Simulated scan of single mutants.
Amino acid sequence: MSDRRGSRAWRVQGAAGSVALKANRPGDETAGRDKAAEVAQEDVHLVRLAEAGALDPAYRVGAGAWDGGRWLAVRWVDGTPVWHAFAPARARRSDGEGDGEGASEGERRRLLGIARTWAGGLARLHAAGWAHADVQPTNTLVTPDGHAVLIDYALACGPGDGPRLPYRGALTHTTAPEVADALLATPADAHVPVGPAADVWGLGASLFWCWTGHRPVAYEDGAGRGEKLGAIAAGGTVRLPDVRPWPFPEFEDVVTACLAPVPGDRPTAAALADRLAR
């Protein structure tokens, strides 16, 4: 399915169904990251999350070593990355100002349902004392019935973390301001723990990006990572009414609440899921 950033992934079909299989790609580590160690770390996280009741134990199928490093197999999720799931909504932009009628009531409910189930998945992690720490459009799949399913727990941060790879951020565009600030203020080998509030910011950033087609913080494509993190740490975001494809007050209010610059001002994932359910 993919071959990038030092790892490969396949869909493997067998008599008992399908699994997603990932393994490190030897000799191709990215930005100094040990992908074999990340695969092993994700396996540990899946076991611990299942024990904490935050993840279905059946999700993890198996793991082990191979000649070039580590492999991990998880249950196949029949779904589409959120970016692609939001494509019809982005395509309904009626003009450059985003002031058209936009989508149908059914499409609006679909987007709210994706946001609700995404927040619900994060709420289960947070209730167990964990943060996903890599909330982004490619790490969540939308099933045919419109439910969001979290995947890729390699970078997750949990209670009582023992020896682990230092967390040094994930996708820059969905990094919360407080995490961006900590990354800039600490050495490259320091572990920066991530909490639930950062996941909520990542959720809002992902929804903003997938719906509008614009990243929530403005910076040049060619800017270095440090410059991008600095812009995020400053706490400002692009005004949603300036880039939205069409007006959607209920959705916009949720996204804006998630992107509050101060962690304590953001709603919890559980509160978001409840709000969206109503």
Rank of each mutant, 00 (worst) to 15 (best):
D145S: 07
D161N: 15
N139F: 02
L125K: 02
L122V: 00
D152E: 03
R116T: 06
P166M: 09
Q136V: 11
L125N: 00
V179W: 09
P137D: 06
Q136P: 04
L155V: 11
T174Q: 08
R164C: 10
T140N: 06
R116A: 06
H173E: 15
L141S: 01
A128M: 00
Y167C: 07
V142A: 01
L155Y: 10
A185Y: 09
A127Y: 07
A182Q: 11
P159G: 15
T186E: 09
W118L: 07
R116N: 03
L155I: 12
A156H: 14
T186M: 14
P137F: 01
G146C: 05
R116F: 06
T140D: 04
L171F: 13
H126E: 02
V179R: 11
L112E: 12
A180T: 12
V135L: 00
L125W: 00
G120V: 00
D134Y: 01
A133G: 02
P144E: 02
A131G: 02
L155R: 10
P166A: 11
A119K: 04
A190T: 08
A185I: 12
G169C: 07
I114M: 09
G120Q: 03
D161G: 15
N139K: 00
G121T: 02
T172L: 13
W130R: 03
T140M: 06
L165G: 13
A180E: 11
A156C: 12
H173F: 14
